[in-house]
Amino acid sequence: MDENTRRTLAQSIETARRLSSTVEIGETVRKMDEARKLARTSEVGEAMSRLRSVTATNEFMEKIAAARRTLNFVEPQAMKAMQAAPRFFLPPSPVSAHLRQLAENTAKIAQACKSVLVPLQPIFNRLSEQSAKAKLVEASGWLPHSSTPFHLIDEDQSTEEVDATIASFYEENWSSIETDFLEAVSDHEIDAEAKICFAEAIKAHKLGLYRTVPRTLFPEVERVAAVEFYDGKRKVKTKDGKMVGITSLPTIRRDIGNLPAGEVTTYDYGYHLFKKMESHLYEKVGEDPDTIAGFEADPVPNRHASLHGIIVYNTAKSSLNALIMTEFLFHMMSRVKTYLIEEADEDNE
């Protein structure tokens, strides 16, 4: 890496560090959702204003952040350059339009980077392919994850073919996937009981006891929340003074949304899982038949539907999705806990 490249990298890191303390992924998601809704109406000008308010950050660094999530595809030279950067190399907000436009702009991004960080160009080529495959994975009902066999998926495959490919891969390689899950959970800042419970859910999945997995893990996530964040209480007071139950993790989900977005985007497919957490995992299903049918069509278990017996989640796919979402939640709760401790230490200084 020459001196100019090194200087540019250092400047980018410093820019990302400053931004990371001010921009929050939750706020970005909300603004983008507002912009999409406005775009469907006559308020086009207002929609564009909302979009610009989201994307008017360091765009180059945002693209790099997305690329950072694909390190398993990165060539050695680029890998070395990116690993040399500290955590604050990551920007605080997701890519414009939540990475959806990234694949379309890959060629332009690669060209823009060529004069600055030539080794990064292959990353964007890989990212474009990976983004398209992730959409196929989600369309087939599986959550995209570090364990997903993207190398076996072609963009021209049907969702049925992708579904069959992923199902076979998990079945044939479960031993190593199980080990990866358990190692990931062992590193999280959660108590021993949570780790034991997750290990039991892993065993249940291996034995084909698929109903057991979401019915075990949703209450365990709630228990961890109570122990780590709510002093053992099952009801908490919101900012407006209302007492609410903790079953939907109201304040924890808010705190996750307030983290610097680098904390979410550096978890493999963290943004996809964050959106699923916000839009599906803790929604109230209710009693409307059409609403229930909509949730039933989604193989990702919903907490309310699962624990109240509204929907039976009894497939390997729904069980695996529950494991993925739980490990993601444990990871993000650990990060929130770390930030809260750091903030307390700063207040005491």
Rank of each mutant, 00 (worst) to 15 (best):
T179Q: 10
E200M: 14
N173V: 02
E200H: 14
I177N: 01
A201V: 03
D191P: 10
C197H: 13
S176T: 09
S176G: 04
E178F: 02
A194H: 11
A192V: 11
W174C: 03
I190V: 15
T179A: 11
E189S: 10
A194C: 13
C197D: 13
F198G: 12
F198R: 08
F181P: 02
K195S: 10
V185D: 04
S176E: 12
V185T: 06
I190E: 06
D180W: 00
K203F: 09
A199L: 07
S186H: 06
D187Y: 06
I190K: 03
E183R: 04
V185E: 08
I196G: 13
A194L: 11
A201K: 10
A192W: 09
D180L: 04
V185F: 09
K203I: 04
E178L: 02
D191Y: 12
E178K: 13
A184E: 12
A184D: 11
C197G: 11
L182Y: 06
I196R: 15
D191N: 15
V185Y: 06
V185S: 07
I196V: 14
K195A: 09
A201I: 06
D191M: 12
E193Y: 14
E200N: 15
E183I: 06
T179I: 02
D191L: 13
H188E: 15
V185R: 07
I190L: 05
K203H: 10
F181H: 03
I177R: 01
E178V: 01
N173H: 11
I177A: 02
E189H: 05
I202L: 00
A204N: 10
N173T: 00
D180E: 04
E200F: 11
I190H: 03
L182G: 02
D187R: 14
E200G: 12
A204Y: 05
D180I: 01
S175F: 01
T179C: 06
S176P: 00
D187V: 10
F181R: 02
S175H: 05
E193T: 14
A204D: 12
C197T: 13
D187L: 13
T179M: 02
W174Q: 03
T179H: 05
D187N: 13
I190F: 05
E200W: 09
I196F: 13
E183T: 07
A184C: 07
A194G: 12
A201D: 10
I190P: 02
L182T: 04
K203V: 05
S186F: 05
V185W: 03
I190R: 00
A201Y: 02
I196T: 14
D187H: 13
N173D: 00
A192N: 12
F181L: 00
T179V: 08
E178H: 07
L182V: 03
S175R: 01
I177F: 07
S176D: 12
N173S: 07
A192F: 11
K203R: 13
K195H: 09
A184Y: 05
T179K: 08
S175T: 07
F181T: 01
S176V: 09
F198H: 10
K203P: 03
I177M: 03
A192I: 12
S175D: 09
S186W: 00
A201S: 14
A201Q: 10
A204W: 05
L182P: 03
D180S: 08
W174K: 01
E183K: 07
E178W: 06
K195D: 10
I202M: 10
E178S: 13
K203T: 12
I202Y: 01
A184N: 10
S176H: 05
E193S: 15
I190N: 07
D187T: 14
S176W: 01
